[in-house]
Design a protein around this nucleic acid. Structure first.
Lengths: 249, 249
DNA sequence: GGTCTGCGTTCGGCATTATCGAACCGCTCT
DNA sequence: AGAGCGGTTCGATAATGCCGAACGCAGACC
């Protein structure tokens, strides 16, 4: 492998640090975190400010992410083929199921949400596009893990979001076997109390799983008597198959 | 002013070029556009790929934006104070007016949409957060231009989106005077045939306009008899004032 | 109110670092 | 079969960005 440009890599590390928390960071904090001299960081920060990737708080002098990144991020959505080809199917899925629909991809060990359709008749929800979901505690994540060509084991300690979260790697592996066998995944209050999700894999022309689509909603609607209503499962699988077909040509 | 780091600036220029169109770009194209040797660009691109800001098409070798940018962009939303403080008011505005609500800021000569609430009971719409609106052909843009402290004249040739778009700089200036005088702006089918918008300014603690909030909807509902229904205007102005108050403390 | 600690910022010498252009390879189209 | 066009590699060169010490300004703390 070839070499990589130092300053660009450092700039990226700064941006990732600034994105990791809602707090603004100062030069000194960044210097400590990255193990670099303050002067070096200041030079990179000055450049990042000039190109709009970072903004500086005039009062405190601390740094935060800049507005240009928001626009770059939304440009990514236009470029992403999986998203543009599947938007219509996600709408249809949300309409049929009357639940919120989600599309995600595996990215750096998380599920990156690349599309999100609100539940019909219930629009006051915050949009989740661009956010991460945990792989081991979401239906989308289970689907993506189960079909991950690299078979990355999910990051070591599985965080418990609720009492139902699968925290034992062996239990998760069993679950993934099941997902592979039946072709879809469920998640029952493993991420948020009272919410249930269903997801199925989307494959590209070569048959490789490139994403997952699913729905998420209240346990009372999706699994009222403790068991999933299978019609929801077929809605999700229909949508996944339709997108897979669309990607094939 | 101090110096800036060459390679980081070039990396930013590459990202902006990749974001400027939905097309993937090759090394040669980028080299021509930026007037740099291919080898130089390749080095930067290799680094950008490694940090996930750019992805390379395995088939064609061309480059496109990467998924990490989507996540960074959504992180910006968490950091942006204007947005976090005004989300609830935007929801309320959408609820009262039963139209879609929008919040935007001035950014590099455009209106950057930082929040967007769908119209109630009509959720199958695509989200516009992160996209640009033209300043001269949107209600949000007129408000922001009218109160821009730097008074940047809108970029030279005013593009006509519909027959009603204000393309004459003098006409626009007159309109902006009116916006300043009455404290809100309207846009009647100047961006999209059949759609009307209303917006009002949001000020920070120092009284400087930092953003705008507004609604957008079908002309039949907002201005049925050719004249704007003034109750919509008061909904918007109420929301703007409420946010301004919230930012004051 | 004075000191002190911490911040962001500036500066210039040094050598590390990225730049550059030519050469390379695989592909497509002629 | 060749030419032309992609993306990629490579190594010499000197320009480049790195670093650490010094600066000025706050605010905190006696």
């Amino acid at each position: 492998m070839g070499e990589t440009i130092q300053s660009v890599e450092r700039a990226a590390a700064i941006l990732r640090l600034l994105a990791s928390g809602p707090r603004q960071l100062g030069v000194a904090e960044l210097a400590k975190a990255l193990g670099l001299p303050k002067g070096t960081l200041h030079g990179i920060l000055r450049t990042l400010v000039r190109v709009g990737f970072v903004e500086q708080d005039l009062a405190t002098g601390k740094y935060r992410l800049g507005a240009t990144l928001l626009h770059l991020g939304s440009s990514y959505l236009d470029v992403n083929e999986l998203r543009t080809r599947s938007i219509n199917w996600a709408d249809a899925l949300a309409g049929r199921s009357r639940e919120s629909a989600w599309i995600g991809t595996l990215h750096e060990g998380h599920v990156l949400v690349i599309h999100h359709v609100f539940r019909p008749d219930d629009s006051m929800q915050t949009l989740q596009v661009g956010t991460y979901l945990p792989t081991h505690a979401s239906a989308l994540g289970k689907v993506l893990l189960a079909h991950d060509p690299y078979g990355e084991a999910p990051a070591a300690p599985l965080r418990a979001y609720t009492k139902a979260t699968l925290t034992d790697p062996k239990a998760l592996e069993t679950e993934l076997d099941q997902v592979r066998a039946r072709g879809w995944a469920a998640e029952r209050e493993e991420l948020t109390e009272g919410e249930v999700a269903i997801a199925a894999p989307i494959k590209d022309a070569r048959g490789i799983v490139v994403g997952a689509i699913g729905i998420r909603g209240a346990v009372e609607r999706l699994a009222p008597d403790g068991a999933l209503h299978m019609e929801y499962v077929s809605y999700v699988r229909d949508a996944a198959r339709a997108i897979t077909r669309a990607l094939a040509r």
